[in-house]
Write a protein that binds this DNA or RNA. Structure first.
Lengths: 203, 203
DNA sequence: GGGAATATTCCC
DNA sequence: GGGAATATTCCC
C-alpha cells in the first residue's frame, strides 16, 4: 500500500478550523488535475487522460479506463470510476456534456484552490429517523408517533365538538327562556292592567 | 492497487438475502486468520503475527506493527491498526487481555464460519435527527417541530378554554332565566288569584 | 470505546 | 443521481 502524504489535508480538515480547509476529496481531485496538467505540458505528444477544460471552469476525464486504473489509486483508496463519480455528485458537481466525462462546479476552477473550502457535501433531506431503521420499523415508529399526537389532538377536537354542541343547546335554551320571559312579562302587564282578563291564552 | 477478490462477499452481503452472508469485515478477518493459520503451520520456526487463541474462541494479534503494515493492506483498504480496532468495536468484539491484543466475540470462533452471519454492527442510539445537523440546528428543528405541534394543541386548548367559559356564562344566564321564570310564574299566579295585589315587589 | 465526518460500495 | 450500508478516519 502506497503511503498517502495527502493525509495532512484530512487531519486539518477535521479540525475546528474547517472553514479554512477543503474536504480531502476536493483537495485530492484538485491536486490530481494540477499534477496531471504539469505532466500534460511536459509531454505534448501523449494523449491526455484528464485535464482542466478550455475555460478552466471544469475538467474532463478523457480516458476513464486509464484514469481509473492508474490515477485513482494514486489519490484514493480505490480504482472505481463510479466511486469517483459518486463523490463528485456528493459535492455537487454537474456532468455538463453528454458525450464526454466533463464536470463543472462553480467553486472548482483552475487556479482557484482557495475556492475549494467553500464546497460542501450535499446533505440528504433531513429524515427524522436514523438510517439503520428499516422502512417497516420507520412506519411503525411514525404511526406510533402520529398516534400519540393524534390521540391528544383527537381528544381535544372531540371535546371541542362536544362543547360547541353543548353551547348551541344552551343558546337554544336561552332563546326559549327569552321568548318565555317576554310572554310572561306581556302576560303580567296585561294582568296588571286588566286584572280580570284571561291571560293563559298567551301560553 | 491489488484487486480484491473478496468483493463477492460484499456483493452478496448487500443483497436481500443478507441473513446468509456475513459483513465483509468479518469474512475478511476470518479469512485472514485461516490463511495465516495455514502459514503458521507450514513455518513452525517463524514468529506468529496473528493467530486464533488456544481455545479457538478468539484471536491474538502478536505483532501489531507487522500485522498493520503487511496483513491489513492485503485484506482492507488501509494499514492502520486503529481502524482495524475501530471495526472490531463496531462489531462488538471485546479486548480480553490487558497485555496483548486479544479479542473475543461470542460468534467469532475457529471452525465456525457459519456463525459470522449472526454478528451485526452495533447500532448507535436512535437519534431523531440526521447526524450532519449540528446541535444548534437540531435544537432549532426540535423547537420548530415542537412549535408546530404546540401551536395546534395550543389553539385547540385555547378554543376549549373559551368554549368552557362561554358555556359557564350561558349556564349562568340560564340559571338567571330559571329564577326569573319562577318568579314571573309566581307573580302571575298571585296576580291571577289576587288580581288587585301589588305584585311588583317580587322583582 | 465510541460518536461522527468522510469515503467507498452497492443498489435503485 | 442519489439513498443507504459499510469502511476508514479523526477526535473525544
Amino acid at each position: 500500500m502506497a503511503t498517502d502524504n495527502r493525509n495532512i489535508h484530512r487531519k486539518i480538515g477535521r479540525s475546528t478550523t474547517r472553514t479554512k480547509c477543503p474536504a480531502p476529496f476536493l483537495s485530492k481531485t484538485y491536486d490530481l488535475l494540477e499534477e496531471q496538467e504539469e505532466e500534460n505540458n511536459n509531454n505534448n505528444n501523449n494523449i491526455k487522460v484528464v485535464s482542466w477544460n478550455g475555460e478552466g471552469n471544469g475538467f474532463v476525464v478523457w480516458c476513464p479506463d486509464e484514469f481509473s486504473e492508474v490515477m485513482l489509486p494514486k489519490y484514493f483508496k480505490h480504482n472505481n470510476f463510479s466511486s469517483f463519480i459518486r463523490q463528485l455528485n456528493t459535492y455537487g458537481f454537474k456532468k455538463v456534456a453528454s458525450k464526454r466525462w466533463e464536470f463543472h462546479h462553480e467553486k472548482f476552477q483552475k487556479g482557484c484552490r482557495h475556492l475549494l473550502a467553500e464546497i460542501t457535501r450535499k446533505k440528504c433531506e433531513p429524515s427524522v429517523f436514523p438510517t439503520y431503521l428499516n422502512p417497516s420499523k420507520k412506519s411503525t415508529l411514525l404511526l406510533a408517533r402520529n398516534n400519540q399526537e393524534n390521540t391528544t389532538r383527537q381528544l381535544l377536537m372531540e371535546e371541542n365538538q362536544n362543547l360547541k354542541k353543548e353551547k348551541m343547546e344552551l343558546q337554544l335554551q336561552i332563546a326559549h327562556f327569552k321568548t318565555l320571559e317576554m310572554k310572561l312579562l306581556q302576560c303580567l302587564s296585561q294582568c296588571v292592567e286588566n286584572p280580570h282578563n284571561k291571560t293563559r291564552r298567551l301560553f
